[in-house]
Design a protein around this nucleic acid. Structure first.
Length: 427
RNA sequence: GGAAGGGUGGCCGAGCGGUUGAAGGCGGCGGCCUCGAAAGCCGUUGAGGGUCUUCAGGCCCUCCGUGAGUUCGAAUCUCACCCCUUCCGCCA
């Protein structure tokens, strides 16, 4: 959420920034609401002041044994006025709040201007794409033939876009999760967390999924609870309504969780394979930092995610999201895209973002500097480190052999009891 | 699900319907003492918003789980909800 004062004082900047995102906001409505709110507030505070002063008078008169019936009667009037104003203030405040909750973050100055994903510049290309002397097959064919993936039966159990793994496939997924968590905790200094997979409406609002993107979420019937679309939601909300000390920062968390997304509006997209599922596994990285360090922290967060791809020997590229493709809450985002030989394209496998204080303001996460008065909002960041299902898909495709088997990347073998290869027999 | 108790400032904890923004303690900060430190002593120390001012700061409003209500006046009374603890029942 943007600060109301900031929007008020930097109208043109905000308008321009939101336009660059392709966001249409009627800021005129905001202005009149904001003016009205302050007018009401002024009047209300004056009346409250009067009430406070006179109430003290009444107390004194009563103590002195005097009769205060006259002013008490007067105050009855003032009180009902206060009540009425209170109500209109609450209403206008709610309207204003909803407007602010619906406004996306302002892109960082370094973010390239563009209209959609075709304008995202490639920052870096890493690793050697594998050469095949045969036609590389898609991971869904490889996995199904090996007997480690079963999309048909998954559809019987639930429906389309759900995964079912067997044997070495299930084990590979688990190995990837453990591998990623171990690297991030033991090498990169993140604290492992295992958060709830279901969160309440407030948590979803804090990180920006609500109120605008309700249709992307799975909601529980009869509960105001939602299945998490990413660990970002529960983990960022760990510190909601807290005042941290500067010495505590930065805080690094990593979490494995399943993620649930309705994928509304993506019917017909990536209908086959593990790329777009309603349920998938992900290891997430989350940081809480001071405003001064957050952009350095974004670079190191991205490097932490890249480490996983490098160790797995998967070719990938780094792109920077342009203003038109940036997510709602993000000020700056890098995407990591892994090479998928069968499709001949790079596919997103990680998204690393700095939200600056956008989420912190919604979630009320602040910190205090030693010896100084007042508080400051922290900056929050997060990134996938990595999406596990897509990672498994990338391994199947990049490490596939002519005979339909798949080599296990060396870095993972110790997590697979030394298994070097998945074959039809071992699968 | 049944019964009881409780949610107060960074933390712990007191609080008669009217100088209680809130005693006391811890922690933090400043000072005294000391070669230095500890201990001890003294002082200081919440957040959000509005408004005035060149700044420092002044003035005002709000906040004692959340939301309604009673009252001239609510941390204090009433109701509903949420959360926590303990006991009983059930259960992975």
């Amino acid at each position: 959420m943007l600060e109301i004062k900031f929007v008020r004082q930097n109208f043109e900047t905000v308008e321009k920034a939101l336009a660059a995102r392709g966001h249409s906001t009627d800021l005129g409505g905001f202005k009149s609401c904001d003016d009205e709110r302050r007018a009401i507030l002024l009047e209300l505070e004056a009346l409250r002041h009067q009430r406070n002063v006179v109430s003290d008078q009444i107390a004194e008169m009563k103590r002195a044994g005097e009769n205060a019936d006259d002013i008490v009667a007067q105050m009855r009037d003032v009180s009902s006025k206060i009540k009425a104003l209170d109500k209109s203030l609450a209403e206008i405040q709610e309207t204003l709040e909803q407007m602010l909750l619906g406004m996306p973050n302002i892109p960082h100055v370094s973010v390239p201007v563009g209209k959609d994903e075709t304008d995202n510049p490639v920052v870096n290309v890493v690793g050697e794409r594998p050469e095949f002397d045969f036609e590389p097959r898609a991971h869904w064919d490889i996995g199904t033939d090996l007997g480690i993936l079963d999309f048909e039966r998954a559809a019987k159990i639930t429906g389309a876009r759900f995964p079912l793994y067997y044997g070495a496939g299930a084990r590979l997924e688990r190995a990837l999760i453990n591998f990623m968590l171990d690297i991030h905790t033991q090498v990169h200094g993140y604290t492992e967390t295992l958060p709830p997979f279901i969160v309440n409406r407030q948590s979803m609002t804090h990180t920006g999924q609500l109120p605008k993107f309700e249709e992307d979420l799975f909601k529980l019937v009869d509960w105001d609870y939602y299945l998490i679309p990413t660990a970002e939601v529960p983990v960022t909300n760990i510190h909601q309504d807290e005042i941290l000390t500067e010495a505590q920062l930065p805080i690094y968390y990593t979490a494995y969780t399943p993620c649930f997304r309705s994928e509304a509006g993506s019917y017909g997209k990536d209908t086959r394979g593990l790329i777009r599922q309603h349920q998938f596994n992900k290891v997430e990285l989350v940081k809480f930092t001071t405003p001064q360090t957050s952009y350095d922290e974004l670079e190191s967060l991205r490097a932490d995610a890249e480490t996983i791809l490098t160790k797995l020997e998967l070719p990938y590229q780094v792109i920077e999201l342009c203003t038109g493709d940036l997510g709602f809450s993000a000020a700056k985002t890098y995407d990591l895209e892994v090479w998928m030989p069968a499709q001949g394209v790079y596919r997103e496998i990680s998204s690393c973002s700095n939200f600056e204080n956008f989420q912190a303001r919604r979630a009320n996460i602040r910190f205090k500097k030693k010896g100084l008065k007042g508080t400051e909002l922290v900056h929050t960041l997060n990134g996938s480190g990595l999406a596990v299902g897509r990672c498994l898909a990338a391994i199947l495709e990049n490490f596939q052999q002519d005979d339909g088997s798949v080599i296990i990347p060396p870095a993972l073998r110790s997590y697979m009891s030394g298994t070097e290869k998945i074959t039809r027999e071992t699968g």
